[in-house]
Design a binder for these strands. Structure first.
Length: 476
DNA sequence: ATGTTC
């Protein structure tokens, strides 16, 4: 594979073989070296994506790129429907609208400290976590589904789970347009029916954090962040419902690709023309699943507020304002370079720059908040979207640290140790459904997210605003 | 990520 250095933190894979467009990836020299290492499949997957019909130049990868189902995680690909552009479930991922929501309190770290254990216990009690976790008291019925799947977070607010103001600072207003509940299979509804308001497993979490450092005081003020402030970061997605939607369409898409004469270098890239029945069906079901995920984070927010109250914090001081809520895994219609294109982001964050009409009015002068979780022992970042991202990456930035160790490698390392005890000694309280998940998620399992963010900022794809340090971690 | 091999 021919790779050219294309500027600081920027590399280009010129069109070669079956590629229809160039691919570009962003990385520090260290990250680039790892990506080029023999056996790493991420760049090969990026090249595969560049062969798909109707792709708009370039196929993009951010510094947290790693191997995924068909498409790499940390990738962005835009398709033009007027040039045979396709939609691919693998380009969105199994956890449709896996994403993060940041809440900010008016509390300081010092005010939290005396009630930290109580808060950890209350959060763990009120926010179900773990594989197959359920919230049976919210069991959804046939009458709930159409509105829930079209209105997303707004549906939860209608149910009294949150305030109308919560919807102002959510990507797409908390409801991706174009949802078609009839495209969501009965099996997907069955799986999701008792999972609304639950965290799930794997890398999903709820963290209580504090603002450890402010890089850009002006932007931090616009976002409502101040040093020492207590924040809450929720990372979860569409649970079994989204997983089943993806499953339902992968096989159908493979047949559709064959029928439409689309040559696939990898079956996992199964795709159909955007305008085909299969493409439209997937987009309708995907948006519905995305809205389930927006509702999920909204319901969890309501229970997080309840947990603060039960831990003894006064309601006035803990409103937990929604700073922002964004998707890491979705496909959506956007205008780039004067064209309306379908942008797939898989493990990537929309990062619209200053002045963009889709940035909430209160942040518009600064740019969209970009929330970048790290690992549970170090820190997470809040960035702001930039003009550079608009010009180069279809308005996209990184979404996290990216794994360094596989789950099994991490478990092997963790087995000899006491991860929960080690974190507790550093002031981080972990409440987890299973030890196995904590072992897979030890800090050493991840790259240092600071390195990823450095590359992103160096490439002009985001601007650091603040760094958040964990205090309490709820895990599956 | 995932009723973690429906």
């Amino acid at each position: 594979m021919r790779i050219e250095r294309d500027g600081p933190y920027r590399y280009r894979i010129p069109r070669q073989g079956a590629m229809r467009v160039d691919a570009v990836f962003y990385a520090s020299p260290d990250i680039a070296r790892d990506l080029k290492a023999e056996g790493d499949q991420a760049l090969h997957q990026l090249v595969n994506v560049a062969t798909l019909p109707g792709i708009v130049e370039p196929a993009v990868a951010l510094p947290d790129i790693h191997w995924g189902y068909g498409f790499p995680i940390g990738g962005v690909a835009a398709f033009d429907p007027r040039r045979g552009g396709v939609v691919s479930p693998g380009g969105v991922g199994f956890d449709i609208n896996c994403g993060v929501r940041l809440l900010c309190s008016d509390l300081t770290r010092e005010e939290l400290e005396p009630r930290k254990e109580a808060l950890a216990d209350a959060l763990f009690r009120l926010v179900p976590a773990g594989v197959g976790s359920e919230r049976r008291e919210l069991r959804l019925t046939a009458a709930d589904w159409p509105r829930l799947l079209t209105r997303g977070a707004g549906w939860a607010v209608e149910q009294g789970l949150g305030d109308p103001g919560d919807l102002e600072c959510i990507e797409s207003g908390g409801a991706l347009p174009g949802a078609d509940p009839d495209r969501v299979s009965p099996r997907a509804l069955e799986r999701g029916g008792s999972q609304l308001g639950t965290l799930g497993s794997g890398n999903h979490f709820l963290e209580v954090q504090y603002v450890e450092h402010v890089y850009d005081p002006e932007a931090a003020e616009a976002f409502g962040l101040f040093p020492g402030q207590v924040t809450v970061l929720i990372h979860t997605g569409s649970r079994g419902l989204g997983h089943q939607v993806c499953q339902d369409f992968v096989d159908r898409m493979l047949a559709a690709a064959r029928r439409h004469g689309i040559e696939l270098p990898d079956r996992q890239l199964a795709a159909a023309p955007i305008e085909s029945p299969e493409g439209q069906g997937y987009l309708g079901a995907m948006a519905a699943a995305a809205n389930f995920a927006f509702a999920n984070r909204q319901v969890i927010t309501a229970y997080a507020r309840e947990a603060f109250t039960r831990a003894g914090f006064g309601p006035g001081s803990t409103r937990l304002r929604v700073l922002y809520d964004l998707a890491h895994n979705n496909a959506e219609w956007e205008e780039h370079g004067g064209r309306r294109v379908l942008v797939h982001r898989k493990g990537a964050t929309r990062a619209f720059g200053p002045g963009h009409p889709d940035v909430p009015a209160r942040y518009r002068a600064v740019g969209q908040p970009v929330l970048v979780p790290g690992d549970m022992g170090r820190y997470s970042y809040v960035l702001a979207g930039t003009e550079g991202a608009m010009a180069e990456t279809f308005g996209s930035s990184c979404h996290g640290a990216g794994r360094r160790l596989s789950r099994s490698q991490a478990k092997k390392v963790a087995r000899q140790r006491d991860p929960v005890g080690e974190l507790a000694r550093r002031g981080i309280l972990v409440r987890a459904a299973t030890r196995a998940t904590v072992d897979e998620e030890i800090p050493e399992a991840y790259k240092d997210v600071a390195d990823v963010v450095e590359a992103v900022e160096g490439a002009g794809l985001g601007r650091r605003v603040a760094r958040l340090r964990p205090l309490i971690v709820v895990k599956g």
